[in-house]
Design a protein around this nucleic acid. Structure first.
Lengths: 123, 123
DNA sequence: CAGTATCCTACTGGATACTG
DNA sequence: CAGTATCCAGTAGGATACTG
C-alpha cells in the first residue's frame, strides 16, 4: 500500500477535518459572509439577512463562531437588549478563502449541474 | 434593513451553498486530497488510505464525486474486478482552494483550539 | 475486489412557545 | 430585542452481512 504524507484519519491532527467541522455546517460560512458584507450586525439583522435560518440555528452557529474566535459579540447592557456581531481579525482572514471557493463554485456550477443530470441518465 | 448583494437563502442560486453541500460532508474533500496525492487509486486503496471510512460511505462519496464530474471511475471488466479512480480536470481545479483552506487551518488551529478552551471557561 | 443491502443510532436542524 | 427550552423529523453515517 502507498503511504500518504498526511494522516487524514486522525481528526485532531488533521487540518482539513478541523476547518471542515466548523465550516461544513449549514450556516457558519453564510454568517461569516453576511458579516463581512455589513461589518456590524445585530442578531435580528443577521436573522433577516439570511432569511431562512431559524433563531435556534443562528444562536448556535454564532456561539460556535464566537467560541472559535471568528466572530466578536458585543453586548450593550440596556433594555431592550442590544447585541452587535462583527468579524474578528481571525474571521476576516478566512474570508478570502471562502470567496475563492465561492468563485470557483460560481464558475463551475453549471458544469456540475449538467454533470449530475448526465450521470443520472446513465443509471 | 440592509440589503445584501447575494441572496444566500436561495440554495439553487447560491454558489456557497452549492459548493458546501458537496464539500461539507464528512469524506468528499478527504477523498479528493488522497486522489490528488496518489494520482490513481483503486477502491480498496482509498479505503485503506483514509483508514476510518466505512465501505458504504466511501462508495456513496465516490458516487457523488463521480456524478459531479470531479472524479473519474474506470472499470476493467475482469475477474476479480478492478476499478480505478482519479481526479478529473474539474476535480484537480478545486484542489488549490482546498489546500489553501487546509493551510489556513494549519496556521490557526492552535489559536482556535485555545479560543475554544478560553470560551468554555468563561461560561 | 468492489461493492450492495439492511439495520440502526446519533446528530442536525426546524417549529413552536416562552423569557429577561 | 435577543435569545432559551422543548419537542420532533429527517438524514448522515456506522456495523454487519452478503454478492457477482
Amino acid at each position: 500500500m502507498k503511504k500518504l504524507d498526511i494522516n487524514f484519519s486522525e481528526p485532531l491532527n488533521c487540518p482539513v477535518r478541523n476547518v471542515l467541522d466548523r465550516i461544513g455546517d449549514k450556516w457558519s460560512l453564510l454568517i461569516l459572509l453576511v458579516l463581512e458584507q455589513e461589518d456590524v450586525l445585530r442578531f435580528n439583522e443577521i436573522h433577516q439577512s439570511i432569511g431562512d435560518i431559524s433563531q435556534k440555528m443562528l444562536s448556535v452557529s454564532l456561539k460556535n463562531l464566537e467560541a472559535d474566535g471568528l466572530v466578536n459579540r458585543k453586548v450593550y447592557p440596556q433594555i431592550p437588549p442590544k447585541v452587535e456581531y462583527k468579524l474578528t481579525d481571525l474571521g476576516k482572514s478566512l474570508i478570502p478563502f471562502v470567496n475563492a471557493l465561492s468563485d470557483w463554485s460560481k464558475q463551475h456550477m453549471d458544469t456540475i449541474l449538467k454533470n449530475r443530470t448526465a450521470y443520472k441518465k446513465k443509471l
